[in-house]
Computed example of a mutant assay.
Amino acid sequence: MYHPYFRGKQFELITIRETAPLLADKEFVPIIEPVRESLGGLKKTLQSVSDAGGRAIVIVNPYHGDHQEDGTSITGLLQDGYIGHDAIAAGILLRSDMSVADVMACYGDHADHNPVLVHAGFNTPKDLAAALEAQMSHMTNVFVEDQDKLLYRRHFNQSRRILVKDGFKRQRNADYPPVEEFSDLHVTYADRGMDGFGDFLIVGDVYSEGGGPAYAVAIHLTFIDNDKDDVMYIYHFVSDTKDTPTDPAGKFGQALGKLIKKLDSGTSKLLETEAIREFRSLHAKGHFPGLGYVKKLSMKHHIETLAAYLG
């Protein structure tokens, strides 16, 4: 049903490991695009997913990061531990520079790994669908595209279809509004003829290596508004200090103070998830765990929120 799309950075992989039992219980299937040369973290993550009885899709030809020129080491990881293993599928990323022959070659190379096609800019759907006609009823196709490309998606309507949309409008931390709409896809995916949906959590589809100085610190937290047709919104709790790259701990304290104030007002509509309880604990201790850890908590909260909503 829900397919969160992760780039395989450290805290993204940790998020998957820590939520693996919940993901498995709700039959949520993470999509992982490895972006780091070392695959040790990915291997641990796939083991956690497998141990929990869950499933995952691993992109074998990433567009971003250290494997964008050559994904053979990812294929090797799957071959070493997951041939014929239903829990871990090979995801083939279909970009605009790929031909039908390219796709079919990659599909053949990963036939033992339940290949899933992840459409993200590919432009010859009719020919590809014809080439895959015999397999179509057993396939899953994931569409990372605009919702209005119905003519594209209709070529694959005999398969299981997942629509992934980016609800996170990335900008400078200092420029985020206090709250804005995130997505209604968790409510409307079936109305769009889809069998499931996904998003890029609170990170967004825009890839960056990160690591630059934080002139402002923001905590991003999603919530579902029952008074507005269950649309999902996102809070951006932004530090008051925005004009210096120093003191990230102090800025986090400012942003966290705004979050706690909103929670205590009783009007936030934020679900009291495990992640929220940890934010409360950090506030009580006056502790700054690092920006990567903060992002991990926000991602966990997003998953917990959707898990509670989808029951």
Rank of each mutant, 00 (worst) to 15 (best):
His3Ile: 00
Ile14Leu: 13
Thr15Gly: 07
Glu18Ser: 05
Glu18Phe: 08
Pro21Glu: 06
Leu22Thr: 02
Leu23Trp: 09
Asp25Val: 03
Ile31Asn: 01
Glu37Arg: 12
Glu37Asn: 10
Ser38Ala: 13
Ser38Met: 01
Leu39Met: 02
Gly40Phe: 04
Leu46Gly: 03
Arg55Tyr: 07
Arg55Thr: 02
Val58Lys: 07
Val58Ser: 11
Val60Phe: 02
His64Asn: 08
His64Tyr: 15
His64Ala: 12
Gly65Thr: 11
Asp66Arg: 12
Gln68Ser: 13
Gln68Phe: 12
Gly71Thr: 00
Ile74Glu: 02
Gln79Leu: 06
Gly81Met: 09
His85Arg: 04
Asp86Gly: 00
Ala87Thr: 14
Gly91His: 05
Asp97Cys: 01
Ser99Gly: 11
Val100Gln: 11
Val100Glu: 12
Asp109Tyr: 09
Ala111Glu: 15
Pro115Gln: 14
Val116Ile: 12
Leu117Thr: 02
Gly121Ser: 09
Gly121Tyr: 05
Ala129Gly: 03
Ala130Val: 04
Asn141Phe: 04
Phe143Ser: 04
Phe143Met: 02
Gln147Gly: 13
Asp148Gln: 09
Lys149Pro: 00
Lys149His: 10
Arg153His: 07
His155Thr: 04
Phe156Ile: 01
Phe156Trp: 05
Ser159Glu: 00
Arg161Pro: 00
Arg161Ser: 12
Leu163His: 14
Leu163Thr: 01
Asp166Ile: 03
Ala174Glu: 15
Tyr176Asp: 10
Ser183Gly: 08
Leu185His: 08
Thr188Met: 10
Gly193Lys: 07
Asp195Phe: 00
Gly196Ala: 01
Ile202Trp: 01
Val203Ile: 14
Asp205Asn: 15
Asp205Leu: 07
Val206Cys: 10
Tyr207Lys: 07
Glu209Gln: 09
Gly210Gln: 13
Pro213His: 11
Ala214Asp: 05
Ala214Gln: 10
Ala216Gln: 06
Ala218Tyr: 03
Phe223Ser: 06
Asp227Arg: 06
Lys228Ser: 09
Val231Ile: 08
Ile234Thr: 07
Thr241Gly: 03
Lys242Gln: 15
Lys242Asp: 02
Asp243Met: 05
Asp247Trp: 08
Pro248Tyr: 07
Ala249Gln: 11
Gly250Lys: 09
Phe252Trp: 02
Gln254Leu: 08
Gln254His: 06
Gly257Glu: 03
Leu259Cys: 05
Leu259Val: 08
Ile260His: 09
Lys261His: 11
Ser268Phe: 01
Ser268Ile: 00
Leu271Met: 13
Ala275Met: 03
Glu278Trp: 07
Glu278Gln: 13
Gly286Tyr: 06
Leu297Gln: 11
His302Gly: 09
Ile303Phe: 06
Leu306Cys: 11
Ala308Cys: 09
Ala308Gln: 13
Gly311Cys: 04
